[in-house]
Nucleic acid binder design. Sequence first.
DNA 1: CACGCCGACTAGAACGTTCTAGAGTCGGGT
DNA 2: ACCCGACTCTAGAACGTTCTAGTCGGCGTG
Lengths: 339, 339
Amino acid sequence: MQSGERRTTLADVAAEAGVSVALASIVMRGAAGAGAATRQRVLDVAQRLGYQPDSRARLLRSGRTRLLGVVFDVRHPFHSDLLTGFYDAAGSAGYEVTLSAVTPRRDERTAIAGLLQDRCEALVLFSPRSRTADLATLSARMPVVAMMRTIRHRDVDVVRTDDARGSELAVDHLVGLGHRRIAHVDGGTLPGAAERRHGYQAAMRRHGLTDFVHVVPGGSGEEDGARAAAALRSGAGFGGAAPTAVTVFNDLSAAGLLDVLRRNGFDVPGDISVVGYDDSSFSRLSHIDLTTVAQDVEVLAGEAVRRAVQRIERTPVEHREVVIEPRLVVRGTSGHHVS
Amino acid sequence: MQSGERRTTLADVAAEAGVSVALASIVMRGAAGAGAATRQRVLDVAQRLGYQPDSRARLLRSGRTRLLGVVFDVRHPFHSDLLTGFYDAAGSAGYEVTLSAVTPRRDERTAIAGLLQDRCEALVLFSPRSRTADLATLSARMPVVAMMRTIRHRDVDVVRTDDARGSELAVDHLVGLGHRRIAHVDGGTLPGAAERRHGYQAAMRRHGLTDFVHVVPGGSGEEDGARAAAALRSGAGFGGAAPTAVTVFNDLSAAGLLDVLRRNGFDVPGDISVVGYDDSSFSRLSHIDLTTVAQDVEVLAGEAVRRAVQRIERTPVEHREVVIEPRLVVRGTSGHHVS
DNA sequence: CACGCCGACTAGAACGTTCTAGAGTCGGGT
DNA sequence: ACCCGACTCTAGAACGTTCTAGTCGGCGTG
């Protein structure tokens, strides 16, 4: 099949229906100005010939593309969730979505360049790692929305979760369960790590637990969490006493930490409570069952689309940065402190 | 920023450089037929004006898009891995990739329709669920490659893993460890489930274990595996004796099964060995550490691209169906049978 | 009956490229 | 001196749409 014949164009449909191309165009895009009978006839012919409008030609002429470009990372499960919400939000705003993936061998520059050619009207970047200056340059060409990360530049919009607040929720939860010796395994220089660390510290101070603040260097991988577990067991932070609870930079690191703890005979949450961050799909596995801080996917996606559309349509915008409230998901790895 | 001014076109560049549009075009696409000095001058001007070619116009004119459309499911982690390989393979074949995602609220039809408008030259569908007839209709319009699934239609190409062989590898591995009472938790009517079930049955027969063949109804979710675990413990299949090993339809189901087993005091792999399927990222978590059957992502992606390109360029094709050998990844959930 | 108006329809330009056909220029071989 | 080929460059059509500016009847109104 897929024969060499030219695909059917609007001209074919028009000829077959015995009308002008212009009228066929009017019918196809549902515009006013065609008689009911003619309209039906054109529609029938189009259907019969299997006519598919050529979006390239259409958009070339009309200037608009109603296309939102999204750069996401295939390695980040959270991005997949966000994508789901993004399609919904874009759809109801009357925009299409075009995707460009970052992979281990395809960097962000390449992914962005791919979208640039597609003439999308705005760029939405999931957890961008580009330098602020590069994003600023980009924003001279089209609206740019950065997600899950702070960018301090007046031409780049930001939609992110309040990560400091997320850590605070985790600490509040643990304090509510009677914990005092709460450690934090951080994410080093990774995006969001500083906010999460500061949130932890602020919450500890607020609860009068300044003396118990203990940050253990971690990272984003399982092995980072495992390493941190070893450091914790040595009990360096609390004058020899092991912490009774830990908040971790992300779920993957938390999983590594959990594993080492359990292997070493610790009962979770009996001996020690663990709270992750991200609500990754695997944290829901009953076997892991991780208490964690969830980002609100629907709202994040919705706000990003809203912001992009506002910029495209030049609607005045109230705040450059939209910060979404996180939500604590209590599962099986956190429990009452028994002294 | 993103001012209302028209974006710079080839005509602008040409005018500024004092050459014709045609020559500017020649320079921009690196074609032969421009003097070195002129070429450099045009390039400089283009750079200075921030010229970005409009792919829509370009492709409208040239007819070709060199675009491969991919439909993937955001929920399937394996698809993310495959995407990585796909970008690589397409890139080195000189093709671009355009993505359309299936999400819980965006079905395959919609995802395909989105790509159709983009005028890609071939469609590659990851684990398509569409009916064969629909795919056949589609293939009248453009080459269609289905992945990870059998399609019996002469116009639809197929690139998939030999799932029967995958199950056989799992069984061979377990038999090699001394197991005889090996059960299979299947995937019902899901794509690939029948092949995996048949592979299990064939391998059991080959090892003379026909009497021990025992298929437990399962599914793709964690809860399916959990349910199957309960059924297994009742020992229905082997005359009251519980199996010493299980092969499971996929990793997620295996994780659910593992969890229930361990919670009920079974030692894995001491009391029972478990083998999953897919090598999902979470199966690598040290906490799960699942022995599983891996699909060769690089090869799958490479073959899919090769096949799509062959169809596009009308190169004769040897086999309609390309079947890739799976690979067993031995981790911690399988061990010697101790009787 | 003339007028204006409205609805149905159309011709042709426009969008930003690529491609075809050909025009000019230069240098070298006869 | 002439021609030829190679090279550089250009004009203008073409791609499949949408949009602008109409044309053409018919009908209600004065």
